[in-house]
Design a protein around this nucleic acid. Structure first.
Length: 293
DNA sequence: AGCGAACCGGAC
DNA sequence: TCCGGTTCGC
């Protein structure tokens, strides 16, 4: 287990990253955070010079997950240059990054748990799914492949409190399994919109879940998942005429296109800051504060 | 095309 | 009563 040089706080905030709705298998510890990604267990603690990350068995796994080979500064500067109205949100969450988990299938099935759901329950459900995978060490599991999830079946998942998601997860797992072991990852090689369309063929996967998989699972950084929080934020900032209206497919696509037009290659990152700000405001129960640019 | 309701179960 | 969404039916 290697603990590289400390990563400056300006470049990384592990707590923000792992609690911003991209991954669901990280927990707070006395000294920091511990989580699983792919076959690796990672620990992070905050030292004097910043965050110290360790991962086992692959010592480089955390570098990949947090994309530490990329500097955050140019990305946030580009967002602010293109959209000064987001400056307050960028500055409020230094070290927030778009993550890059090892396995897109874990991202897919995790986000199938998120529909019409809350974070506490999502976390428990993802942990339950992980429990069907191979044990790595005490209480930690490698997320199961689709073939294994397909065997579990709807009834058992419903029995474990998945509700109607027991059906969609079970069916989507069977569909992914049928398409073959390399199908999901092969979508990475497609243009973004084609990969998204292919994902939407799966049971229970609509535009939002597909965009989550595209952004976090595949690394398409022009993908912009529009959930209820981002929808409201986007109405406030960019579509005042849609305030209070429902999120239709047409409007969903328009929000994504606005972000892609305005932020280009950093659209997905821009979305992450605005999304997380809105989530925190929601959790705090207070109205989100917006600033003049 | 666009809106509303159902869907499971738990949090607020 | 309301979801961090998808799907179906008006």
């Amino acid at each position: 287990m290697k603990g590289g040089p400390a990563v400056p706080n300006k470049e990384l905030d592990v707590g923000l990253c792992v609690s911003s709705g991209q991954v669901f298998r990280w927990r707070q510890t006395a000294s920091g955070f511990i989580g699983v990604d792919g076959p690796n267990v990672m620990e992070a603690r905050k030292g004097r010079g910043g965050w110290v990350l360790e991962s086992r068995p692959d010592p480089d796994a955390a570098t990949r997950l947090f994309q530490l080979d990329r500097s955050l500064e140019p990305i946030t500067q580009e967002i602010i240059r293109r959209g000064p109205e987001l400056k307050p949100f960028i500055e409020a969450y230094p070290g927030l990054r778009v993550l890059r988990p090892k396995r897109a299938d874990e991202t897919l099935f995790s986000f199938l748990c998120t529909t019409n759901n809350n974070l506490a329950r999502i976390t428990r459900m993802v942990e339950t799914l992980a429990g069907y995978g191979k044990r790595i060490e005490d209480g930690r599991f490698e997320f199961p492949i689709a073939e294994r999830l397909a065997e579990v079946g709807e009834a058992e998942l419903r029995g474990k409190g998945f509700g109607y998601r027991g059906r969609t997860i079970s069916r989507a797992a069977a569909q992914v399994a049928t398409r073959g072991s390399s199908w999901l990852d092969s979508l990475k090689g497609l243009p973004y919109d084609e990969a998204r369309s292919a994902l939407c063929e799966l049971d229970g996967v609509g535009l939002k879940v597909a965009d989550c998989v595209c952004l976090v699972g595949f690394g398409f950084e022009t993908a912009v998942p529009v959930d209820t929080h981002l929808w409201r934020a986007a109405c406030d900032l960019y579509f005042p005429e849609w305030e209070g209206k429902s999120l239709t497919e047409k409007r969903y696509l328009a929000v994504g296109d606005l972000f892609r037009d305005r932020f280009g290659e950093v659209a997905g990152w821009a979305h992450q800051y605005l999304f997380y700000h809105r989530v925190l405001a929601y959790r705090g129960g207070k109205a989100p504060v917006y600033y003049e640019q």
